[in-house]
Measured scan of single mutants.
Amino acid sequence: QAPETKIVDKSRVACDGGEGALGHPRVWLQIPEDTGWVECPYCDCKYVLKGSKADAL
């Protein structure tokens, strides 16, 4: 199944896999201003900063 994409309001987000005990260790991710998105290294969930150029795609 394809990784999930989430639109977020802040450039710093936490990801834990979203499945409680079945998820992964919580990691904090920083969305770079130049790209407007970041992917979780564990679950490949893509976080897109709302209003960024990546959000316009």
Rank of each mutant, 00 (worst) to 15 (best):
V27G: 02
G18Q: 08
G36D: 04
V8E: 02
D9V: 09
V27M: 02
A2R: 13
D16K: 07
W28H: 09
V8M: 02
V48Y: 08
C40A: 09
G18K: 10
P25V: 12
D55V: 00
T5M: 11
E4T: 15
L49K: 14
R26A: 02
K50G: 11
W37P: 01
V8Q: 02
G17F: 04
R26S: 05
G51V: 04
G23W: 13
A56M: 12
K46P: 00
P41Q: 03
E19D: 10
W37K: 03
A54P: 04
T5V: 15
G23A: 15
R12F: 13
S52R: 00
P32G: 04
D34Y: 06
E19V: 09
K53D: 11
W28T: 06
I31F: 02
W37G: 04
G51Y: 01
V13H: 01
K46T: 03
R12P: 15
A14P: 09
L57M: 12
C43I: 02
D44F: 15
W37I: 07
C40W: 11
P25F: 09
K53V: 12
L22N: 09
T5E: 04
K46I: 14
L49M: 08
C43Q: 00
L49V: 13
K10P: 01
R26L: 11
T35E: 07
L22C: 01
P32L: 07
C43W: 03
Q30D: 14
Y42W: 09
C15A: 00
G18V: 03
W37N: 02
A21T: 09
G36Y: 04
W37S: 06
V13C: 09
V48L: 08
I7K: 06
E39L: 13
I31T: 01
K50D: 13
D9Q: 08
P32S: 06
E19R: 11
G36T: 02
P41F: 07
L22P: 07
T5W: 15
S52P: 01
K10C: 10
P32C: 11
L29R: 01
K53A: 12
P3A: 11
K53T: 11
E19A: 13
P25S: 05
K53E: 12
D16W: 03
E4M: 15
K53P: 12
V48F: 06
K46D: 14
A2N: 11
E19P: 14
E33W: 08
V8Y: 01
A56R: 12
C43A: 00
D55T: 00
A14H: 06
K6E: 04
R12K: 07
G23S: 14
G18E: 06
V13N: 03
D34M: 04
P3K: 14
K6H: 15
Y42V: 12
E33L: 13
Q1D: 08
G23I: 09
E39K: 14
P41S: 04
V48H: 07
D34H: 07
C40T: 09
P3W: 11
D9I: 09
V38Q: 01
H24N: 02
H24W: 05
V38L: 04
K10E: 12
V8C: 05
D9R: 07
A56G: 09
P32N: 08
L49F: 05
G51H: 02
A21S: 09
S11W: 07
V27K: 04
T5D: 05
T5G: 08
V8P: 04
G51F: 00
W37C: 01
D34S: 07
D55Q: 00
K50N: 11
H24Q: 03
E33H: 05
E33I: 11
G20L: 06
G17A: 05
L57K: 10
W37F: 13
C43V: 02
C40M: 11
D9S: 11
S11I: 10
L57Q: 12
G20N: 03
A14W: 11
V38A: 04
P32Q: 04
E39F: 14
A14S: 09
K10W: 08
S11V: 12
A14R: 04
K46Y: 05
R26K: 10
G23Y: 06
Q1H: 15
Y47P: 15
I7F: 08
S52D: 08
T35C: 06
E39I: 14
K10T: 14
V48K: 01
H24I: 03
K10S: 13
V48S: 00
C45P: 01
A14T: 07
C43G: 00
K53Y: 09
K6N: 07
P3E: 08
Y42K: 13
V8K: 03
T35L: 11
Q1E: 08
K50W: 00
E33F: 10
Q30N: 10
K53R: 07
K50H: 10
K46M: 03
K10D: 11
V48D: 07
L29V: 01
S11Q: 08
I31R: 02
V38M: 06
Q30W: 12
P25K: 08
A14Y: 14
L49Y: 05
G36K: 02
H24Y: 05
T35K: 09
V27N: 04
G36W: 02
R26W: 06
I7E: 05
C43E: 00
D34L: 09
V27E: 05
E33D: 08
R12S: 08
G20M: 03
D16P: 05
Y42F: 11
A54R: 00
V8R: 03
K6V: 15
V48Q: 09
K46R: 13
D44V: 07
Y42M: 14
L49I: 11
L49W: 00
E33P: 11
S52T: 05
I31N: 02
Q30H: 10
S11D: 07
P25H: 06
K53F: 09
E19I: 10
A14N: 01
A56D: 13
C15F: 00
D55A: 00
A21M: 08
Y42H: 05
E39P: 01
Q1L: 12
C15S: 00
V38K: 01
V13F: 08
E39R: 14
K50C: 14
C40D: 10
A21H: 08
H24E: 03
K46W: 04
D44P: 11
V13E: 02
G17D: 05
E33R: 08
D9P: 04
V38W: 02
L49Q: 13
L49H: 13
Y47Q: 10
A2H: 14
L22Q: 10
G18H: 12
C15G: 00
V13M: 02
G18M: 14
W28E: 08
A21Q: 10
P3F: 12
Y42I: 14
V8S: 08
K50F: 01
P25N: 08
A21D: 10
S52A: 05
I31H: 04
I7N: 01
Y47E: 14
W37T: 03
K53C: 14
D9Y: 13
C43K: 00
G23E: 07
P25Q: 08
K53I: 13
E4R: 15
L57W: 04
Y42S: 09
A56T: 14
V27R: 01
Y42E: 10
C40I: 10
Y47V: 08
L57V: 12
G51I: 01
L22S: 12
L49R: 10
L29F: 02
V27A: 04
A2E: 11
L49A: 12
L49G: 14
S11P: 13
E33Y: 09
E33T: 10
H24D: 05
C43P: 00
S11F: 06
E19Q: 09
A56Q: 12
A54T: 05
G23V: 08
C15W: 00
A2Y: 13
G51W: 00
D34N: 07
D16S: 10
D55Y: 00
H24K: 02
C45K: 15
W28C: 12
E4K: 15
K46V: 15
A21Y: 09
C40V: 11
A54L: 06
P3R: 14
Y47C: 14
T35H: 06
V48C: 14
E19Y: 07
G18L: 07
K10G: 08
D16F: 10
V27P: 03
E19N: 10
E4S: 15
C45S: 15
P3D: 09
E33G: 07
W37R: 01
G20V: 05
Q1G: 11
C15M: 00
L22H: 09
E33S: 06
G17W: 04
A54W: 00
K6M: 11
